[in-house]
C-alpha cells in the first residue's frame, strides 16, 4: 500500500518543507515507511538527511519534472511525501497528477491565499484529465500558537464560504520546527537543553499529521 502526498504552494515561505519534514518524522516515528522526494532546488530535505537522525526516512534529491513520476512509481510501499518548490512549475503539476492527496500550506496573508487559489485551480483542472478526484487539504501554517489574528479568522471564514477544505489543525510557528533543520535531527531527538517547547511541538506535529493522513 502506497500513499503519495504532495506538499504544494506556488509561493516560497508558505511552510511546505517544514510541514513535509514534520509529517515525515511523525509517520516514521510511529513505524511507517516514509520516502521524501525533495523537489525544492535548495534541497532542504537532502541536507536534513546528512544529519544524525536515526529515523529511517529515505530522502531522494535532484527531483525534476522529468524524473518525478519515475521516482514516485519506483516506491513500492509506505508514504511518499513530495516537497515541491515554491513556484508554479511543470514539476508541481506532474507531482499533483500522481498524488493521492495534496496538502497546501499557506500563511495567513492575502498573497499566500491567492497563490493557494492558483494551486487549487490547477488541481481542479487536472482532475478532469486524470479522471479521478485529487483530494486536497488547505492548512494554515506558521501561525501563533496563542493568538489568532483577525486576518486568520477572516481567511478561514472565506475558505469555508467557498467550500474549501481548511484543516482544523495548523502548523504553528515554533522554534522546534526550525530546529529540526538547523540541527538536522528530528523533533523526537532534539536536545531539550538547546530547544524550548519540544513536547508542545510534538503535540502540534502529531495532530497535524493525524488530520492529514486520516
Amino acid at each position: 500500500m502506497k500513499q503519495v502526498i504532495a506538499f504544494a504552494a506556488s509561493k516560497g515561505g508558505a511552510g511546505k518543507s517544514s510541514t513535509c519534514q514534520i509529517v515525515a518524522e511523525v509517520l516514521s516515528h510511529h513505524g511507517q515507511v516514509v520516502t521524501i522526494l525533495d523537489g525544492d532546488p535548495n534541497e532542504p530535505q537532502v541536507r536534513w538527511r546528512t544529519g544524525t537522525s536515526k529515523l529511517p526516512i529515505t530522502v531522494i534529491g535532484d527531483i525534476t519534472e522529468n524524473n518525478v513520476v519515475k521516482h514516485i512509481n519506483a516506491v513500492d510501499e509506505g508514504y511518499v511525501l513530495i516537497d515541491l518548490e515554491g513556484v508554479a512549475s511543470r514539476l508541481v503539476a506532474r507531482a499533483i497528477a500522481k498524488a493521492d492527496l495534496v496538502v497546501i500550506p499557506f500563511q495567513a496573508s492575502t498573497l499566500d491565499a491567492a497563490e493557494a487559489g492558483k494551486t487549487i485551480n490547477l488541481i481542479t483542472e487536472e482532475e478532469e484529465i486524470v479522471e479521478r478526484k485529487i483530494p486536497f487539504k488547505v492548512m494554515l501554517s506558521r501561525t501563533s500558537p496563542v493568538i489568532k489574528t483577525r486576518l486568520e479568522t477572516d481567511l478561514a471564514a472565506q475558505l469555508e464560504r467557498n467550500g474549501l477544505p481548511l484543516m482544523r489543525n495548523q502548523l504553528n510557528e515554533r522554534a522546534a520546527f526550525k530546529s529540526v533543520f538547523a540541527y538536522k535531527t528530528s523533533l523526537y531527538e532534539l536536545d531539550p537543553e538547546k530547544v524550548n517547547g519540544i513536547p508542545k511541538a510534538i503535540e502540534n506535529a502529531e495532530a497535524v499529521t493525524k488530520e492529514i493522513v486520516s
Binding site: E65, S89, A93, E125
Partner: peptide, 18 residues
C-alpha cells in the same frame, strides 16, 4: 495523460522551469 497535464498546467502558469 502527462502531456495533457503539462498543457493545462502551462495554461495556468505552471510552466517548465527547467
Amino acid at each position: 495523460t502527462l502531456e495533457k497535464v503539462d498543457r493545462v498546467a502551462e495554461k495556468l502558469g505552471f510552466a517548465s522551469r527547467e
